[in-house]
């Protein structure tokens, strides 16, 4: 047994509770990226979240985008990297680049 929380089990539980849930998944990485492709972050309508798609660098941005995905039901593709002009706000300090797919659950 592992001690770390299981985002997919949490996503299912939250969705069954009717909380309004989005699932974020790292679908591509370039260069040094803190979490591998396939990593998940689960977010609910109120901004509660579990799991990670980075070392904490971009989770805040993903959580706020997730609110819109839950609202509209439309999936979104997000991209983060140091080349981004907002690097210091929501970039990866490690110098990598990642794409994150955010979709509604349910």
């Amino acid at each position: 047994m592992t001690a770390s929380p299981d985002p997919l089990a949490i996503a299912e539980a939250w969705a069954r509770e009717g909380r309004g849930v989005a699932l974020a998944t790292v679908v591509e990485t370039w260069g040094s990226a803190p979490r591998p492709v396939g990593s998940h972050l689960v977010i609910d309508r109120d901004g509660a979240f579990e799991g990670s798609v980075s070392g904490g660098c971009v989770e805040g941005a993903v959580v706020s985008e997730a609110a819109e995905v839950i609202e509209t039901g439309r999936p979104r593709m997000l991209e983060f990297g140091v080349a981004d002009e907002t690097a210091w706000e929501v970039g990866l300090s490690c110098g990598g680049r990642i794409r994150v797919f955010v979709e509604q659950v349910g």
Binding site: L8, E12, A15, R16, L23, E103, Q104, V105, G106
Partner: peptide, 10 residues
């Protein structure tokens, strides 16, 4: 992801 797919995966 549809809930039934997520449930099947889990």
């Amino acid at each position: 992801m549809r809930l039934d797919l997520l449930a099947a995966l889990n």
